[in-house]
Write a protein that binds this DNA or RNA. Structure first.
Length: 582
DNA sequence: CTGACTACTTAGTATGGATCAC
DNA sequence: GTGATCCATACTAAGTAGTCAG
């Protein structure tokens, strides 16, 4: 079986007979950036139209009832639905919302509604709460009916034909209108995210396919036939002016193949990473500032798995940074800290405004360089003023074909998993203990990549419940042991009562197993409080490492990957044996 | 070299159905 | 059967990185 995905290229038409014998990810690919030859789909599903509120749900301005025009009312409901969230109290959110809301008002409404503080949305808010409560209380039959309708829509719009395969579409529903809530301190929070109409939508499909029909009385913005891209539908969103796409599910051939290729590039990095490391160490001594900055940045990306850090337009989004966009204020230099020399203290907001905080010892040369980069600069100045991601990636491309900054994250994540699995798994372990080892290895990667989550709201309670269970199990074990003891005594006296002793022994053993399982579970959960494992599992860890580990240690793959994940990693399940090495 | 534009991957969270304990 | 808890999934924001024109 081919283990490289850079094998020779032929068009699919050259090999019509082989396709039925090959798994999809083994089929030959197209050349020249062609992604498909045939693409047919039904277009997007639009958000349901706005239904005006019943008359008894009133809006009050300055204490007086006010009937709102449908457009104004709709935007008001967006706010009403969010009132339990803290951010509706934030000044930026309220200001942006009010400004956009006023744009939807009739001139009459505009002249009356001039102060958000005087708006009373409580009846609307209560109404929606009651609605969602009622939805929960629906009968089985009603729920079943909704489920069936969803299934029908999924069957009609949720799949497409790409070349010879029926593929699942990831997000076939167009995002509904609402109030934008960015992550972190977003300057645009509260702005109105406009309803997308067919006239905003571009359809992409092949010429010889059945072109999707726009809803009656409407037109698409454009129908195009671009087989150099993978998307089916796109539209421009009004908050940032960026393009949104409808694309295929991760289980699709086109995504799976790309994923496979990503890990193959990371494996090629493994083969030359020592050379690259020697090179950037050497470059720390360069007489050129730009090269010193480049080499120190690359060192951080490699050692700490930092993101590249593209430039962002100021004021368009939250103030976050990655490696190349680090500012002087984001690192503190300590010649000595807690007995360690040359310590760098990082403190900045990364992607999704997740805080990155770390204290790391670095080589003396790196430390001296950082002092140099900070010299004569203000806190808000760029640390690497002679560097950006384009420069860095251009350099990386010269070091290895296909190498970019993000490949280091993939490489270091996957190699860490492999190493940790090797260190943490033991033959002695039962399946539960092996899974704990896996989760710990996964966790090491999540920590490296700084994948955090808010501690679950119910965390403390669920921890307590688990502890209660453990205590109960311990008592149960004591009881069982006592019973075993007395059974042994009885057997000695009466003779021939060995059967009772055997069954009591078994009971003790069973309870011990159960207790261990609970304790393992508690450890796992505690260690996982603020760490999200899913992101690395889905995006950074070569799935073949996990497949091989499962095979080697006799752990069912279902314990590691759920159904969706097995679908996404179908290519890896199929091709990795227990000897696979990343 | 810069900025605009495009395509695609990576990210955390809300949600609601499934599953569990009682 | 019922309520609590868990878990998968949907959602969509926020990154990376390439291309192209000026």
């Amino acid at each position: 079986m081919a283990h490289s995905c850079t094998c020779s290229f032929h068009t699919r038409d050259d090999v019509p007979l082989t396709s039925s014998f090959l798994a999809r990810w083994e089929e030959e690919r197209y050349t020249d950036g062609v992604k498909w030859k045939f693409l047919e789909h039904k277009g997007p599903v639009f958000a349901p139209l706005y239904e005006p509120l019943p008359d008894h749900v009133k809006f009050y301005y300055d204490g007086k009832r006010m009937k709102l025009s449908p457009d104004t009312e709709e935007v008001a409901t967006f706010f009403a639905k969010m009132m339990d969230h803290e951010y509706t109290t934030k000044e930026v959110f309220r200001k942006n919302f009010f400004k956009d809301w006023r744009k939807e008002m009739t001139s009459e409404e505009k002249s009356k509604i001039i102060d958000l503080k005087k708006c009373d949305f409580t009846e609307m808010s209560e109404y929606f709460k009651a609605q969602s409560e009622a939805k929960k209380q629906m009968s089985k039959e009603e729920k079943q009916k909704i489920k069936e309708e969803n299934e029908r829509v999924l069957q009609e719009y949720g799949f497409c034909m790409m070349d010879k395969h029926k593929e699942r579409i990831a997000n076939f529903r167009i995002e509904p209108p609402g109030l934008f809530r960015g992550r972190g301190d977003h300057p645009k929070m509260g702005m109105l995210k406009r309803r997308v109409r067919p006239e905003d939508v571009i359809i992409n499909c092949s010429k010889d396919s059945a072109i999707p029909k726009p809803p009656p009385g409407t037109k698409w913005k454009e129908v195009r036939h671009d087989n150099k891209v993978t998307w089916l539908v796109s539209w421009t969103e009004n908050i940032q002016g960026s393009i949104k796409y409808i694309m295929l599910n991760p289980s699709s051939r086109i995504k799976g193949e790309k994923d496979w290729q990503k890990y193959e590039i990371a494996r090629r990095l493994k083969l030359c990473v020592e050379r690259i490391r020697n090179q950037y160490r050497d470059d720390w001594k360069s007489k050129e500032m730009r090269i010193r900055q480049r080499s120190v940045a690359l060192y951080f990306i490699d050692k700490l798995a930092l993101r590249a850090g593209n430039e962002k337009e100021e004021g368009e989004s939250a103030d976050t940074v990655g490696c190349c966009s680090l500012r002087v204020e984001h690192i503190n230099l300590h010649p000595e800290l807690d007995g360690q020399e040359y310590m760098v203290e990082f403190d900045f907001l990364g992607k999704d405004s997740i805080r990155y905080y770390n204290q790391v010892p670095v080589e003396k040369r790196v430390f001296k360089n950082l002092q140099l980069f900070k010299e004569n600069k203000q806190p808000e100045d760029d640390l690497f003023d002679r560097l950006n991601t384009a420069i860095l990636n251009k350099h990386l491309q010269e070091l290895m074909d296909g190498l970019t900054a993000k490949v280091f994250r993939t490489y270091n994540a996957s190699i860490t998993l492999q190493q940790q699995l090797g260190q943490l798994t033991s033959r002695e372990f039962n399946v539960a203990a092996k899974i704990l080892s896996y989760n710990r290895a996964n966790r090491a990667v999540a920590i490296l990549c700084n994948h955090q989550r808010a501690p679950p709201k119910t965390f403390e309670k669920s921890m307590q419940n688990l502890q209660t269970k453990i205590d109960a199990k311990k008592h149960q074990l004591l009881d069982a042991k006592r019973e075993l003891k007395s059974a042994k005594a009885d057997a000695k006296v009466a003779g021939g009562g060995g059967r009772a002793v055997e069954s009591k022994k078994k009971a003790v053993h069973r309870i011990e197993e159960q207790l261990m399982k609970l304790e393992v579970q508690a450890t796992d959960r505690e260690e996982n409080k603020q760490i999200a494992l899913g992101t690395s599992k889905l995006n950074y860890l070569d799935p073949r490492i996990s497949v091989a580990w499962c095979k080697k240690w006799g752990v069912p793959i279902e314990k590691i990957y759920n159904k969706t994940q097995r679908e996404k990693f179908a290519w890896a399940l199929d091709m990795a044996d227990e000897d696979y090495e990343f």
